[in-house]
């Protein structure tokens, strides 16, 4: 059977994205070291905020500031980070529910040691040195210790 021909096909396009007002305010807040959540008509606070209530579809525009401390609701340990991971040392991916929020946000926790990690642990934001209005303005979370 003869070999069939193959050829590489690489596509690149310059797309743009507009955040809309709600997500735009969230990113702008990060530049000011403020974390904003969206309050639903039922009074739940979604962090990160969403433009529309996933439950009811209602438009959300009531943004309130939540704490930069919170609690780990679940986590998984990355013992050997890959080159594209944002932390180049062992860390945890975790869902963090910030104080004042009703939903948890996926981010990273840097404890240096998996034995320190536990569900229910208190953590605090470690801000990036350069704030650019991106989710990476939160460099990671670290244990909230005095």
């Amino acid at each position: 059977m003869p070999d069939s021909l193959t050829a590489p096909h690489v596509l690149e396009y310059p797309y743009t994205r507009s955040t809309g007002e709600v997500i735009g305010r969230f990113f702008t807040g990060l530049k000011e070291r403020r974390i904003l959540g969206a309050r639903t008509t039922e009074g739940h606070v979604l962090v990160p905020p969403q433009e529309y209530d996933p439950e009811t579809g209602a438009e959300l525009s009531d943004l309130i500031e939540v704490g930069e401390t919170g609690v780990v609701t679940t986590w998984t340990w990355i013992a050997e980070p890959r080159p594209k991971h944002l932390l180049q040392k062992p860390f945890a991916f975790a869902l963090v529910k910030l104080d004042g929020a009703d939903t948890a946000m996926l981010h990273m926790v840097d404890t240096g040691d998996p034995s320190v990690m536990h569900t229910g642990m208190r953590v605090r934001v470690r801000w990036a040195s350069d704030l650019i209005g991106d989710i990476t303005d939160i460099a990671c979370f670290e244990p909230e210790v005095a």
């Binding site: 994205r17 507009s18 955040t19 809309g20 007002e21 997500i23 433009e51 529309y52 438009e59």
Partner: peptide
């Protein structure tokens, strides 16, 4: 251009 809205906001 509608830079003031996301794609979802445009449909909405």
């Amino acid at each position: 251009k509608r830079p003031d809205v996301s794609i979802a906001g445009l449909l909405r």
